[in-house]
Design a protein around this nucleic acid. Structure first.
Lengths: 354, 354
DNA sequence: TTGTACGCGTTATCAA
DNA sequence: TTGATAACGCGTACAA
């Protein structure tokens, strides 16, 4: 053991046992006499050996105990999204049986030409990969990963055939909320959507500008609303934030002559912003305008309002993703799984004023 | 290449070159004839070889490209804290030069006896570790990590001697805000603190119950406020949330006879909650009560208020941590670094009403 | 520019 | 219960 850190072989030598015995002492994979264990532990202590090198163990074992989580957006943005936060919680739980940790990866293929110095899918020692609403950019890296036999799962997105997904009934759920509004008597509604694409352009979406949203969630929820209100006007927000909803709400509710009787927002934060905009304009919710959200999160600081919304099982989605990769790692092949939102009536919807 | 995935040796064999040549083709560490490169690449393609196994490469190279980030709280909680979110962004940038990814680790030594199945410090292949406001629980794991020669940095916390820190001038900054209030003429202020300890007990803190907060940030900021207002009453919140501030604000501002003229909140979210509580009670801010925050974040949905607050350089803190571990990995030993908050006057403070 | 040979630190297997 | 041996898959001196 000339220089460098001591290895398990050094420990074994000092303890006068074989390397395999020393290994067993640390891994606990087999029983060892108390006496030998003590000898090994003593030797380790005297040498300053603190346990097997994870890298070597990982190579030998063929697994690293690491699950990669790929976000399509900036980390900070992902962190601020309450749904994603809860989902991560669920995912952490879901991979716990694997004893795995979550490695944050950013899908930043970004500008072509830019050096993607960041650790990508190819270079990280992963046991599995979870894609969170990924776009198609990392198709090649993904191919490499799958080629290596590493399980991949997508949450709310489509990463191609053969990749199991964790899905949400966005369209059906949104349709449910829309029907609720129609049954209350609403006819003139505006749909406030999440961003259509990476450009995040805000504003009214022309009816004839029938560009379908690139983002799956946006598209599906919009389709659900249009199933009930085909002629609904559409306004795109720049992100899922109260402030975005507030700005949009000001535009949507500004002119009395063109004011809808209800706004279908594609997220609770947007909905909360619309409610604030209504307040600002002296309108009452739900008296003058009804508002529905989507997600079923607790909007911090929004009491006493309680949004009429679709509650999505965010934590379960994460857990499911974890469970799927767990099964795949164990060799069984796992199927996609689909979750259902629950309609929850709050106090932000009522029949339209006459 | 009997069974299993193809290795670089298989590729070399098929391409009729030596393994080392094949290796070089993938790493680009040396120049190779175009012809040979093509042969190797072709062989790889035909075999379905997608590049060097990260595990083996990691062992060989001695580094994994992974930086562990240890949170003391539930992942979901950490994600929801805006300051931590921004910090993570900065950290991601800070470790980019390393090409490293961030591995989320939870400081869940938790109940003794519980099986900490999760990947801990000891079992993860880390190049460095960043502790985020850690408590002392993982002292032993930390020792093992350091024993292995892995760099460790702490953000806002004390992990013992020899561990560089990224610090904030919490006490001085909070003192600055307190002085601002005093110079405006305030004398009766209440300090609304972050949780004192893991129990997160809410409520008034008796003056004689002089228990010092266990949490560094809470303690330091409280000390700063007391430097100016030694007799200030203290109310502890259960977390950094608008709703917590709202609940606390209701208690603090409820009885006119005991109503302070100003509230020093230890976070912007708490401050926003206090402002909402004041509104609820028909009090105007800052006319009837002044409120200061801490952090300098944009509180979503809080416009048109602009908190008088201390702006902390959250992203820079993360970047600095990244820079420090980068330097340490390169062998140079790095010192702690301390950041300063900037006082920003908003529209939530003014002289007290007579 | 290419090839040979060895070591990185473990752990699985099998025999004793 | 313990020990000997052989991979695990790659990178890199060093020699050719």
């Amino acid at each position: 053991m000339a220089a460098g850190r001591p290895t398990i072989a050094d420990v074994a030598r000092v303890a006068q046992v074989s390397p395999s015995t020393a290994s067993v002492v640390f891994s606990g994979k087999a029983s060892v006499t108390d006496a030998t264990r003590a000898r090994v532990l003593d030797a380790a202590a005297s040498l300053g050996y603190t346990g097997p090198d994870p890298r070597a163990a990982s190579l030998r074992r063929g697994s690293s105990g690491i699950v990669g989580v790929v976000f399509e957006e900036h980390l900070g943005a992902a962190f601020r999204d309450p749904i994603k936060a809860v989902m991560m919680d669920g995912l952490a739980e879901g991979v716990a049986p694997l004893g795995a940790g979550l490695l944050l990866l950013q899908d930043d293929a970004g500008a072509p030409g830019a050096v993607p110095a960041s650790p990508n899918l190819r270079s990280a020692p992963l046991d599995a990969v979870v894609l969170v609403g990924c776009s198609g950019r990392l198709a090649d890296s993904l191919e490499a990963v799958r080629g290596r036999g590493i399980p991949v799962v997508v949450i709310e997105g489509d990463a191609g055939p053969g990749i199991p997904r964790v899905e949400l009934d966005n369209r059906e759920a949104q349709r449910h909320a829309a029907r609720h509004l129609r049954s209350l008597g609403h006819e003139d509604v505006v749909v406030l959507t999440l961003p259509f694409d990476a450009s995040r352009r805000r504003g009214w979406v022309d009816a004839d500008d029938a560009r379908a949203p690139v983002v799956d969630v946006t598209r599906e929820r919009l389709a659900g609303a249009r199933d009930v209100f085909p002629a609904a006007r559409v306004y795109a927000a720049g992100g899922s934030l109260i402030d975005e909803g507030l700005a949009a709400g000001r535009m949507i509710l500004a002119r009395a002559s063109q004011r809808p009787t209800a706004v279908i927002a594609q997220s609770d934060l947007l909905a909360a912003g619309v409610v604030r905009a209504a307040e600002e304009l002296g309108l009452s919710v739900p008296g003058d305008v009804s508002v529905t959200g989507f997600d079923g999160i607790t909007v911090d600081g929004f009491a006493p309002y309680e949004l009429t919304t679709l509650v999505q099982p965010a934590a379960e989605k994460g857990r499911a993703a974890g469970a799927i990769v767990t099964r795949m790692i164990e060799g069984s092949d796992a199927a996609s799984i689909s979750f259902t939102c629950t309609f929850r009536q709050g106090n932000t919807t009522s029949p339209p004023a006459r």
